[in-house]
Amino acid sequence: MRVRLRFTKLGKVRFTSHRDVARIWERALRRAGLAVAVTEGFRPRPKLSFGLALSTGHESLAEYLDVELATPLDAAGVAGLPARLSPELAVGVDVVAAAAVEPGGESLQEAVRSCRWRIEALGVDPSSTERLVEVALGADELVVTRQRKGRDVTDDLRPAVLSVAVVGPTAGGTDLEAELAVHPRSVRPFELLAAVTPLASEGRVLRTAQLIWREAGREEPLLAAVDPDAWRASHAQPCTTGRDPRDEPSCTRGVEAEPGHDRTKHFPVPAGGPPER
């Protein structure tokens, strides 16, 4: 059976790469004792399929993984996956939702059409950024130049910028919220900044949602009540600060923790949330 998992990537672990996260997951699934189906052939690999890649250094409240299980789980087993898997993952990677999905359905990479982002523009203030955002949204095209195979290529980003808005000030700049299309290619947050506020540099970047477009509206592959503002507060501190390790979740795992000690505390694992349309 296939299960879909939604997980976070927050804090120090954001500096790991997409491939690193895949390896972390392979080990975590083995540690949790979940039998994952493997590919046939010379070098059997577990059948895992990740959603859109996240750039190294970016954080996320909405990463996805489809796992093909060799032994099916019942409904309670699926519902228990977040609590079962989170302690086996790196600090900052927490499973926030799980559901069984139909095998043979559309893959995540095909289905997701756009992503919602929280992007920190460093070195610019909210009011001037507001004006630049208005100009950008009113423009017919937003041309950016990038290097591809050693040559300069120009692209018009405007059709891919589905929304941008100023959220408010941060310690070093201004937070933006944006929805960016992923087809025909994924627009990256730094490209948006280059097109909209060329003087800003990229600060913290958080993916808040991956969206599938249905006739009824946009929907997330799995819902979870995760609040980007709560994230700012809870992740103001890194996972190891040299403070007394008993005061906060440390990088040191399970072995030292008391039995039943719940380490998945970055986010309350939700029972469900309001559907986003």
Binding site: V13, T56, G57, C239, T240, T241, C251, T252
Partner: peptide
């Protein structure tokens, strides 16, 4: 030093080299 290192790590290759946080790491 983490608050001062953190912005630098966004500018280097393989920043995961410097974050610690391994399973088995001690604080």
């Amino acid at each position: 030093l983490w608050p001062r290192l953190e912005p630098l790590l966004a500018q280097v290759q393989k920043p995961a080299r410097y974050i610690g946080c391994e399973d088995g790491a001690q604080v």
